[in-house]
Design a protein around this nucleic acid. Sequence first.
DNA 1: TATGTCGGTTCATTATTTGAACCATTGGTT
DNA 2: AACCAATGGTTCAAATAATGAACCGACATA
Lengths: 266, 266
Amino acid sequence: MGTTSKALSLLNFFSRATPQIGLSELARLSGLNKATVYRLLGELAAHGFVEQVGTGREYRLGPAFLRLAALREKNVPMRDVALKHLTELSDATGETAHMSLLNGEVLSNLAYVYSNRHGTMVMMDDAEVLELHSTGSGLAVLAYSPKSFVDEMLSRPLTSRTPQTITDPNQIRALLPSIRTEGIAASVGGFEEDVFSHAAPIFDARSNCIGAMAVAAPVSRMTDTLRMMIRDKLMAHARQTTRILGGFPPDTFPTREPQMMLQKEA
Amino acid sequence: MGTTSKALSLLNFFSRATPQIGLSELARLSGLNKATVYRLLGELAAHGFVEQVGTGREYRLGPAFLRLAALREKNVPMRDVALKHLTELSDATGETAHMSLLNGEVLSNLAYVYSNRHGTMVMMDDAEVLELHSTGSGLAVLAYSPKSFVDEMLSRPLTSRTPQTITDPNQIRALLPSIRTEGIAASVGGFEEDVFSHAAPIFDARSNCIGAMAVAAPVSRMTDTLRMMIRDKLMAHARQTTRILGGFPPDTFPTREPQMMLQKEA
DNA sequence: TATGTCGGTTCATTATTTGAACCATTGGTT
DNA sequence: AACCAATGGTTCAAATAATGAACCGACATA
C-alpha cells in the first residue's frame, strides 16, 4: 500500500460515531506507527483535509471537503440527477427512495427522498453508511461486482444488525444468481427491523457497478401489488439514472421487459 | 514536500474552468513525472477522490467528497452557522452576504445569501474562488495572517481582474495596518467591476484567521449611511460567527466599540 | 511522588518513490 | 498511406522519502 493510500485511509476512521480522534488513538486504529500518523495528519492538515479541534487536541475532518464536494457536484451533478429520479420513484411508490454509492467496503448515501403519503416512513441519514451484506442495496452491488471483490467482502466478519441479518457468506453467495437474473435485490429486515428494501444496481461508463438505487418500505405495508409496482418503477428509474450518468449496464443485465414467460434456451 | 502532499495538490488543478484533466496534462501542470502522477492518481482513484471519465480517458474529482463533506458538515455545521448569520446580515443590509474560507492560496465560498430588497444584486458562485489580493475578503484575511504568509502571497504575480485591481504588493501591504485598526477591509471594484465589498475576518480556536464574512453591494447603491450600517452589522455578525464556531479573535483585534474618538497614546 | 497517557520529535535503517526510457494507440497532417 | 506528435500506461535501477523504536515534556490520575 502506497503512502498516499495510508494517508487517505486515515480519513475513513472518522465517522458519525467518532467524529474526532486523537493521534495515539488513530495510530492504534490504523495499525500505523504514531510518528507516521503524525506526519500524515500534518500533510492532510496542510491541505485542509483534517484540522485540530480547539488548541492542540484531537483531529477531525477539515473544511476542504466542502469546496471539493461543491466542485464535484458542479462538474458531475449526480445528486441532482439522483434526486430527480428519487422524487419520481418516491411519488410513484409512496415510500422512501434513496441512492447510495460504493465507497470502498461500504455504501454511502448520495441522496434520499421521503414520501408524504403515509404517517410512517423509513428514515435515512446523510452520513450513515450501509453494509454490503445486510442491505438490499449492498446485495444488488455484490451481485454485479467481480468475484474477487465479493470474496474479499464476504471473507470479513459479517456483523449481525438484526436477528434477520444473513451472516453466512455462502448463504449470501447463493442469493446473488437470482438477483442477477432479476436485476433487483430484496432484503427484509437485514439492516433495520421491519424494513423491506428493494434495490437495483447503478453502473458507470465501464459497466462497473458503482452503487444502487433503492426503495425502502415498512414490512407491514408490503403487499404483492406494492412489490410489483416497486420492482417495475425501480427498474425503470435505475436504468435511466445509469444512462443519464453516462453509464451502461453490463451485457448480462436483464432487459427492461424480462423474458418472464420464456424458457431459457440453453 | 511529502508524497501525500503531492497527491493532494493534484486535486487543486481541478477547477470550474478545467473540470477534467488528462494524465500528461496533469503531469505538466504539477511539474511531476508522468509515472508519478499516474501512480498518485491510481491511489486517489482507489479511494474515490478522482475517477476517470468514460472509458480510459481524462480524470475528474471523485464521489468520495460528497460523503466526506456530508460527514464534516454533520460534525461541524459551519455552513449552517454561516447561513444563519448571513441571512440576518443580508436582511439587515439589503445586500448580498457571503462567507469564504482560506484554502491554501485562495478563498473558497462556504455560503452566501441574497437579499430580495433590490432588483439587482451581486451574484455569487459556489465553486468560484476568491483571490487574496483583489477582494475585500482577501484583504481582511491578509491583514490578520502571519507576515511570512503575506510575503509569500504577495510575491506571486498578482493578476489584474479589473482596472481598479491593486496589483502593487507594497500598495496592498500599506492597506493592511488600517484594516487591522478597523477590523474590517473594503474593496471597490477590485474583483468585479462596480462591486463594493466590505469584509471582516473569521478566526479559529487558535486565533488564526481562517476566512472572512463579507457584504457585497453595487457601487451605485453605496452611501455613507449604508456603509456605516454594513460595518456595524458585519462586525457584529463576524464576531458572533467566530465565537459560535469555537474561535477567538486575536488580542489585537479591535473591540466591538472601537475607540474612534480616542487618540493613540503612544 | 510514582505511573500512565497524551501529542509531538528525533534519526539511522529501510522500503517506497521516482524518472528516463519504452510501449501501444489514437488522431491529425501531409 | 505513411508519417508525426500527441496520448495513457508500464518498467526497473537509482535515489529519495517514509518508517519506527526510543525519547521528550506535559498533563492527568493515583
